[in-house]
Design a protein around this nucleic acid. Structure first.
Length: 269
DNA sequence: ATAGTCACCTGAGCGC
DNA sequence: TGCGCTCAGGTGACTA
């Protein structure tokens, strides 16, 4: 269930349970995820130095490199006690010397796990990623510049990881609502002013969602402690036919690319 | 180079 | 209860 805020919430949730602990063994029950999962023997007994995030990838720094983990569409991580029974879609366990087990569950198997020696950014999955939305590298001016001559829908542009990372289908619709821009407007025709509003909307939407996810961190080790957008107010996503909270106009749904988008025809132009 | 489509996989929900 | 269809939070690979 992961967009950037969920991945960030997961990062903060697992961090205290594995940091400074040694990875003593692992169990790969299903290696057939998005790409074959195979971990080199050299990882054994390496200590977790840091748990980081890049885009929607969790980056678990060890001593000679890092694990790069993606949750795909349906992945989730939990911390369980050594020896606890694995369920149907519990594909991978990473066992630590403190008897904590980091367990990956992923029904649809779109997730992935790789190991990359330092420097981690050289990994092919990370190499071509655009700026983090919450970093100073991402701004209205940047968006304005990069959007030139682009004919695709603005929603597709902000969901392109080479442009900016971490904006998934839900938060793309939500950010466009905040900025007052229809999802299928051609990117190239968005004004400088609107690009500024959109960059801010992306940052505020993601930032608030991270803060909302943070409230569930305490329960992280419970398998049902699902952090994320269910607790949070969505203005348009999934609300086709219901009325806009702001103006009472019915929310519309459209397809942009092959994904559903939602918008208020009055608040968004 | 860009834009659009397909593919990977499982489960839930719906109409019949 | 069962069948078949559609849809779902992601994203690399492929095609035109």
């Amino acid at each position: 269930m992961p967009e950037l805020p969920e991945v960030e919430t997961t990062r903060r949730g697992i961090l205290p349970h594995i940091i400074n602990s040694r990875l003593c063994r692992w169990e790969i029950r299903t290696s057939k995820l998005r790409w074959p999962v195979e971990l080199p023997a050299e990882l054994k007994n390496q200590t977790v130095r840091e748990v980081d995030r890049r885009a929607k990838y969790l980056v678990i720094h060890l001593e000679t490199g890092a694990l790069i983990l993606h949750l795909g569409m349906s992945g989730s991580l939990s911390i369980v006690k050594l020896g606890s029974n694995a369920g149907k879609h519990d594909h991978i366990d990473l066992e630590f010397e403190n008897r904590n087990v980091l367990r990956l569950n992923d029904p649809r198997k779109f997730g992935s796990l790789h190991f990359q020696k330092f420097p981690v950014e050289s990994h092919w999955l990370l190499k071509h990623l655009g700026p983090e939305p919450l970093s100073p590298d991402f701004s209205g001016d940047y968006l304005f510049k990069i959007r030139r001559k682009r004919k695709l829908a603005i929603k597709n542009l902000i969901m392109d990881g080479k442009v900016v990372v971490g904006v998934g289908n839900i938060y793309a619709s939500e950010a466009l609502f905040r900025a007052g821009i229809r999802p299928n407007r051609a990117a190239g025709q968005i004004s400088r002013r609107a690009c500024g509003a959109l960059a801010e909307a992306i940052q505020s939407t993601l930032g608030e969602a991270i803060r909302a996810g943070g409230t569930t961190l305490r329960d992280f080790t419970n398998s049902d402690g699902k952090p994320g957008y269910f607790g949070q107010q969505l203005n348009v996503y999934g609300r086709a036919g219901e009325v806009c909270y702001r103006c009472k106009t019915p929310i519309k749904a459209v397809k942009t690319g092959q994904r559903s988008s939602f918008y208020c025809p009055k608040c968004q132009k």
